[in-house]
Amino acid sequence: MNTFKDRDMQSVIGWVLRIGVYLSIGFVVFGGIFYLYRHGHSIVDHSVFKGVPDFISTGSGIIHGIITFRGQAIMQAGIILLIATPIIRVACSAIGFILEKDYLYTCITLLVLLIIFISLLGGHTG
């Protein structure tokens, strides 16, 4: 019974990872086409660090950018989805361990999620 559920979790996780990667790469490619079409001949200089443009530094800015087909916003949405993919994988494992009634590993998995969450806050304030 137990091994059957482990197998189940493996296929769900494989599935989550695959969809996450395909979808995010799709966004990046799609956004990249718009970006190159519009800015292909602009001159860029990445030698000095100056952050990212304002319109893609907030969630609402990115959503607005996607609606108005701004390449950088679409690419950034893809990248955020890509970063979220392994985190969603961890969340799915947590649910899987709860279903298996493996409470030790439910706690371990939630601890990993908590660390990522703290990291998310740390990036803001640190």
Partner: peptide, 20 residues
């Protein structure tokens, strides 16, 4: 993947991840 995601969330908010 999970390890990189844990630090990528910090980098993302710091503006280190340039989409272009």
């Amino acid at each position: 993947g999970v390890t990189a995601a844990a630090s990528a969330v910090v980098y993302l908010q710091r503006g280190y991840i340039d989409p272009g």
